[in-house]
Simulated assay, not measured.
Amino acid sequence: MIVEQVIGNVTTLVKKAPHVEKIYMPSENLLKRIQRVMTDHGKEIGIRLKGNQCLMDGDILYMDDKNMIVISVTPDDVLTIMPTSLQQMGEIAHQLGNRHLPAQFEGNEMLVQYDYLVEELLQKLEIPYKREKRKVKQAFRHIGHQHD
């Protein structure tokens, strides 16, 4: 089976199929438009997305009355940063921005992929954080940029 488009996402789906097959993948694979994957039931699927489409956790690749195939992202090793003030948020955002480090935000938390140098910086600046395995909704995307 070759999938060329995402049907929807389980978070917005009204009626779900009774049986769910999952494709477990690391978040960095969400950015790949062409790939071959295997469901947890041993079914091989080819993915060939058009344009600039990217996958997200919970995306549905196939669905009929009885079965659906869904993307499930495996947890990433992340630093969850929990600034206690606007000052702390500004400081860490500035520091991470200078490093061109991609970040995601969930509520009042900033998520970045684990890096021991960032962990040392957080300790030095006394900004609360925790290192954890956490499922992210989308891939950490590096933004191409060069200093002139």
Rank of each mutant, 00 (worst) to 15 (best):
M63Y: 03
P128K: 05
L49T: 00
V3M: 00
G97D: 05
I7A: 07
K135M: 08
T74R: 14
N67L: 12
K15M: 06
Q95K: 04
G42P: 13
M56W: 07
Q138D: 10
D65V: 11
A103K: 10
Q87N: 11
I143L: 15
H145W: 10
R134A: 10
S85K: 00
N29C: 08
G97N: 07
I127Q: 00
C54R: 13
M110G: 00
V112Y: 01
G144S: 13
K50I: 07
M110C: 08
H142V: 15
N29Q: 13
V118N: 10
V78G: 06
V20S: 09
E28D: 15
I92Q: 01
L31A: 09
A139C: 11
Q35I: 03
M38G: 10
E109C: 09
M38F: 14
H41E: 14
E4A: 09
I92V: 10
D57Y: 04
S85N: 00
G107P: 06
Q123S: 08
M25W: 02
Q95F: 08
K133I: 09
A103I: 11
L122G: 03
N108W: 02
K124R: 14
E120Y: 03
R33W: 01
Q138T: 12
H142F: 15
P18Q: 03
R99D: 10
M25C: 09
T12K: 10
R33E: 08
V112R: 00
K66Q: 15
E91Q: 06
L125Y: 03
E109I: 02
V3L: 01
N67A: 05
M110P: 00
K43P: 07
R36W: 06
H94N: 02
Q35L: 02
H100M: 13
L13Y: 04
M89W: 09
